[in-house]
Structure formats: structure tokens, C-alpha cells
């Protein structure tokens, strides 16, 4: 199991999450009524799955534990600089974007334009020369979709 040797820590975390999830599901099925119309009932499959996951999680945990002392493989040269924080930033903007519409703080058009221009700008590294083009693209896209959905399809946008 090549994968589990290279990333022992990630594996251990994953296995623990899986075990915790199995526990939560088992607990969640405890309140379900006994089978009534057929012998399986609502709880049978979730419980079986929780059990299977717990077993597999233990196997994974055992293997990862056994392999934990092995050195992680040296990071190969990707030829580019990975940008995990950029992805986190995009995700954060997305969350704010959806939240602002869900809570009816902003309408669909302003929320979309703001969020998309911001994401686009982040992706271009806040390149000033490209910003106007990007903003134009976003405005056209958002207005077009807004018109299409409200005028043609009668979808009720926030």
C-alpha cells in the first residue's frame, strides 16, 4: 500500500475521522424505531455501513501506524509554486457570497458581481491591467444569467 506509507499522518487523521463518523452514525441510529414492515428497518443499512467503516478504519489505522516511522517521500519538484492560501481565500469569498444571498443581505446581481470580481482578481494576483477586462466579463455574465433566469425561466433569484 504505497499511498499509506507516503502519507502516514494524513492516513492516521483520516482513519480517526472515519472511526468518529462511524460512531456518530451508530449513535444516530439508536433512536430509530424497530423494523415494522420488513425485517431490516431504517437502521439496518446505516448500522452495517458504520460497522464496515469502523473495521476498515481500524485496518487503515493499523497500517498507517505501522508505517509511521517511514520517511515521507521527498516532495518532487512540481515546476510551480503551490498556492494553498489562495484556494482558502477563494473558498472564503465563496462562503461569504452564498451567505450574503442566503441571509438576503445582498441581491443576486450585486453579490455575484462583487464576489466574482474579487475571486477573479485574486486569481490574477490583483493585476491592475487585467482588472477592467475581468470586471467587464463578470458584469456581462451576471446580467446575462440574471435576465435569462428571471425573464425566460421565471426562476426566483434572491
Amino acid at each position: 500500500m504505497e499511498g499509506s506509507r507516503r502519507e502516514p499522518l494524513a492516513d492516521i487523521l483520516f482513519a480517526v475521522t472515519v472511526l468518529a463518523l462511524a460512531g456518530i452514525v451508530w449513535w444516530g441510529t439508536a433512536s430509530l424505531p424497530p423494523p415494522r414492515y420488513e425485517p431490516l428497518g431504517s437502521a439496518a443499512l446505516p448500522r452495517a455501513l458504520a460497522l464496515a467503516m469502523a473495521l476498515l478504519g481500524l485496518v487503515l489505522l493499523g497500517r498507517a501506524w505501522a508505517g509511521r516511522r517511514l520517511q515521507a517521500a521527498p516532495a518532487s519538484d512540481l515546476g510551480f509554486r503551490p498556492r494553498p492560501w489562495l484556494a482558502a481565500g477563494v473558498l472564503a469569498v465563496l462562503v461569504l457570497y452564498v451567505a450574503s444571498m442566503d441571509l438576503r443581505l445582498l441581491g443576486f446581481v450585486p453579490a455575484s458581481i462583487l464576489a466574482l470580481v474579487l475571486i477573479g482578481a485574486m486569481l490574477t494576483g490583483f493585476d491592475r491591467r487585467r482588472l477592467p477586462w475581468l470586471a467587464g466579463f463578470v458584469v456581462v455574465l451576471v446580467i446575462a444569467v440574471q435576465l435569462l433566469f428571471t425573464r425566460v425561466f421565471y426562476i426566483d433569484l434572491p
Binding site: 451567505a99 441571509l103 443581505l105
Partner: peptide, 13 residues
């Protein structure tokens, strides 16, 4: 976090 954020935003609203 989502819930927390939601309630913060709701408060602001």
C-alpha cells in the same frame, strides 16, 4: 464556522 458566520451576518443585518 458557517453557522457562526451566519449568525454574525444575521446580527449585522
Amino acid at each position: 464556522n458557517k453557522l457562526l458566520l451566519g449568525s454574525l451576518l444575521a446580527g449585522a443585518a
